[in-house]
Design a protein around this nucleic acid. Structure first.
Length: 296
DNA sequence: AAGGGAGCCTGGCGGC
DNA sequence: TGCCGCCAGGCTCCCT
């Protein structure tokens, strides 16, 4: 479910609660999510302070006192909510809304910090998410980080980076952008949106956008700019809520209202003067939304 | 060796 | 109303 903007939104919601708080108690209410919890998961976390909460691609990472990182992935349907003084007792709280079935509250972090206690609860109906502990020493060379490509945020993703990443690739551009080994953090929604914004066909062989010539650099620049712009706007909007994604206070992201192609099959293309219609097709088992008349 | 497809899960929706 | 098939924001493994 959550792509980079949703994970970043969650991180921003959790950081004020988790950072500098102690993991007083950790409840894992089943033995596994997508993977089994690590051996002695509770014991390796309880009593430790969380120094910081950061993100790499779609992974949330808690830097915990000691020599291990707590690494969390939300899978397709994972979300966090915070309960605590002033939050837990809110009438009509979203804890009982559809999609927040307490049966799927799989992990509870009981936190003590700044003179208050709170609970951070991980809910995940489909259980494609997971939690793991990774040694801090050399973490970048360890799973799951070792194979990740560059972040799509910031200045490092530019035309020459795109050109280099895609060079020689025969896979469709859409598939290459979803490959976390190349660029880490993009998912189905934001790839569709960025390709539309850049005017590039999802079917074009990835290697054909770059290399030499002014037009190649123009294409690569358009793609780099579009990716960064879409991601930045989505983060500003709190991510996209289709079903499961919530901010940690239970509110909804609203970037879905800004989609130009995703889930808009049959609607008019919004590119000025285009006149095309948004189509849906399947690429490696996933839906691609695009406009065949202005994406080349 | 890169690229495609299946599988992991549950829930929501549309169609009959 | 109920049942059925299809679809979903991710990722990994296995096959060609």
């Amino acid at each position: 479910m959550p792509e980079l903007p949703e994970v970043e939104t969650v991180r921003r919601g959790l950081a004020p609660v988790m950072e500098n708080s102690v993991l007083a108690r950790v409840e894992a209410r089943r033995k596994d999510l997508r993977f089994p919890f690590p051996d002695s998961f509770r014991e390796r976390l309880e009593g430790r302070k969380i120094n910081s909460l950061w993100r790499r691609a779609k992974y949330l990472v808690a830097d915990v006192e000691g020599d291990e990182l707590l690494v969390m992935h939300l899978g397709m349907s994972g979300s966090f909510r915070v309960e605590g003084p002033g939050l837990a007792s809110q009438p009509g709280g979203f804890a009982h809304e559809k999609g927040r079935d307490e049966r799927h509250d799989h992990v509870v972090f009981h936190l003590h910090g700044n003179g208050a206690s709170s609970r951070v609860i991980y809910n995940d109906p489909r259980r494609f998410g997971f939690m793991m502990l990774v040694a801090k020493e050399g973490w970048q060379e360890r799973a799951p980080f070792a194979s990740l490509g560059m972040e799509p945020t910031g200045n490092s993703l530019d035309a020459s980076a795109i050109s280099g990443i895609m060079a020689g690739k025969n896979a469709p551009l859409k598939a290459a952008l979803l490959d976390q080994r190349l660029i880490a953090g993009l998912g189905n929604i934001y790839v569709c949106e960025a390709l539309w914004q850049a005017g590039l066909s999802p079917r074009r062989a990835a290697g054909t956008i770059g290399s030499k010539g002014n037009r190649a650099m123009t294409r690569c620049d358009a793609l780099a700019t579009s990716i960064r712009d879409v991601i930045a706007r989505a983060i500003d909007a709190g991510g996209s809520t289709l079903r499961d994604h919530r901010l940690t206070d239970g509110s909804l992201g609203y970037f879905q209202h800004s989609f130009n192609v995703y889930d808009r099959e049959g609607e008019a293309c919004r590119k000025p003067g285009c006149g095309g219609r948004i189509e849906r097709m399947e690429q490696s088992g996933r839906s691609t939304y695009w406009c065949a008349s202005c994406q080349r």
